[in-house]
Design a protein around this nucleic acid. Structure first.
Lengths: 357, 357
DNA sequence: TCGTTTTAGTAAATCGTTTTAGTAGCATTT
DNA sequence: AAATGCTACTAAAACGATTTACTAAAACGA
């Protein structure tokens, strides 16, 4: 039985080779085949073995000629998978998130995945709304970066630098104890005994462990961290200013110290600025130790000695883990914690202690 | 005619309040209403005036109770709009792109839009493949950042720092002439007459204009840029190293100069490192002028004098423009060029010339 | 009382795919 | 000659919304 005439589309060459998108249905009409056949052939489905090569070639060349582009929306709706992740970060331009994202993207791009980015800016409302909105867009999973989990993780989730123990969430974390050992050990070996510590902002998920492990490493060496030499960052600007202000206020107390263990490179840079403004040279008078090893660290003046976090690797590990959880299924149990190792990078912002503080 | 029995779903209270997603169909069955009615009410369609408030309330509260979440995929497929943009950048962690993205996101998040990010890494294949893949995912438009357009822009496109004249593409660009005037003017006023220039990498879209406008501004002041004092960045690392290497090789030539106009802050920082390694003080012996005003610029040592590009604003302008092109329709004609103004930020890396170079 | 309008909805088509369950025709067994 | 198996396909039902084009009943107007 002949199909009902399709408004005479078939014989026309119709679409210009560089024209608008043509749908599978149009392509099928053009070829006098069913969309079923086209779909099977184009996706190289197992069933397609019975389709003769000649037909396949016809389909392929027509697809090329009419510039057929599958509509991912329709496909995703049908197969219930979007090949898209939702990535939630505090902020984009802090140097930290973008390094992690780089690692995420390096992995995803090789697997045909894309990701939607959303910044929560430390706002509680966004911490619950963004995941919901991303879920409505049917992302296959979440990657959170330094972000508290304020949502029911009913989708596979990996949190980079997450310290909460949420069922269903895999945490990718630095070996903080090792990091503290490296940092305090380095300063200790240089002769420092009065070490100031710049704590992270309250909202940063690393703040707690970072400080605790540093205190433990110091106590272990009989040089407990003095409360009066501890100062906390405040304000959520991603600029060194927060470190600058923190150091200013520490200096104002008049307490003596020969070294500073900063929460991150950004605040270390700010702290150095404050120290130099007071006429203190780095590292001659005060050593400053950073954390993270962002690009700027190596080229700061003085070049920053720092504890390197492998941010790119943490991002790619997060992405690989999420992909695995998706393809392997969760039956095998989901990993709770994946740990990566820090490295001490010695540059010029730390030095041997000269006179007692 | 009664609908065929639906495996007895209707009377059960079924889904737990915090359960899996329920579809509109299920919600409708639960309420003994049609999906049509629900859709009209939930979307507050004009037709819904005839639905009594009582029914509306029933729908709203059931939606809340059963935790109804519209499936954006299905909706987008139907309405042919995804409220999603594709954003194409060279690389994420160069400090530049992420600032622009920040601006983009600030605007999009208030409008219910999301975006997919893709990095082309200056690879020709990705420059043509990524836009196609994003188009298959039915993005509503493109925002490109410092990216050559290697695709038929059959979707509304805005290019930040684009200098090609592609029909259908709106370019958001800095007023380069003004920028060059500010920079050269500043150095000239400080007494500099022998100014070295660090050109950008070949792949950067600003490289050409930046250099030409600088030369023009210098020529206008009778101090034409000497070819032997011009050096070009090479390599696509986003670290200051490229600037360091460039300055090293310039210094190796033995040519004399009292100031350097760098392509951007990153390369300025690298150049300063190279200069200081040679025992030249900045700014006492050589002034260094940066470009962009990334976060690190203010806290570098010495703090960078630089030409500020309003990157955040460029991103948000791009996003606003794209949204407008979408809602207004293209009938009114599309803007070809939107220009933003640079600012001179004077800090400590430039100073009055002391002895003739 | 008859015709019209309003009210309160609904059935079915649609978006562009994938996938399940066939089927018609031919060749090969038994 | 009936049964079986292959080959080369296809019809129709998903996926989960939106939207067009209705309709039955009630209210209203003359």
């Amino acid at each position: 039985m002949p199909r009902k005439p399709r408004s005479s589309k078939s014989p026309m060459v119709s679409f210009s080779s560089k024209g608008e998108a043509v749908s599978l249905k149009q392509l099928a009409a053009h070829l006098n085949l069913s969309t079923t056949t086209l779909s099977l052939v184009l996706n190289d489905a197992p069933t397609a073995v019975s389709i003769p090569q000649e037909t396949k070639d016809r389909i392929f060349s027509a697809a090329r000629e009419l510039n057929y582009r599958p509509n991912y929306l329709a496909r995703s709706l049908r197969v219930q998978r979007t090949h898209t992740f939702g990535v939630i970060v505090p902020e984009l331009s802090d140097g930290y998130s973008s390094m992690v994202l780089n690692g995420v993207e390096a992995v995803l791009s090789t697997k045909g995945y894309f990701y939607l980015t959303a910044s929560h800016l430390h706002r509680e409302d966004l911490l619950v709304d963004l995941p919901r909105m991303l879920a409505e867009r049917q992302v296959d999973g979440f990657i959170a970066v330094d972000t508290p989990i304020r949502f029911e993780p009913n989708l596979p989730t990996v949190n980079v630098s997450g310290h909460e123990n949420v069922p269903g969430v895999t945490n990718v974390i630095l070996n903080h104890q090792h990091a503290a050992e490296l940092g305090i050990g380095h300063l200790y070996n240089l002769g420092h005994r009065n070490i100031a510590v710049i704590k992270g902002q309250e909202f940063s998920s690393d703040t707690g462990v970072r400080f605790d492990t540093i205190c433990a490493a110091a106590a272990k060496r009989q040089i407990p961290i003095d409360k009066r030499l501890t100062i906390q960052l405040s304000g959520d600007s991603p600029s060194p200013e927060v470190g600058y202000l923190a150091m200013k206020s520490l200096l104002a107390t008049g307490e003596k110290f020969t070294a500073v263990f900063a929460f991150n490179d950004i605040s270390a840079i700010g702290a150095i600025r404050a120290l130099e403004e007071m006429g203190l040279r780095v590292p001659a008078d005060v050593s400053v130790l950073g954390f993270d090893d962002i690009y700027a660290a190596a080229f700061h003046n003085p070049a920053l000695t720092t504890i390197r976090q492998p941010l790119f690797e943490m991002g790619s590990l997060a992405a690989r883990t999420l992909l695995e959880r998706l393809t392997e299924g969760e039956d095998a149990g989901i990993p709770e914690v994946l740990s990566v190792e820090p490295t001490l990078i010695v540059r010029n912002s730390t030095g041997r202690v000269t006179q007692a503080g």
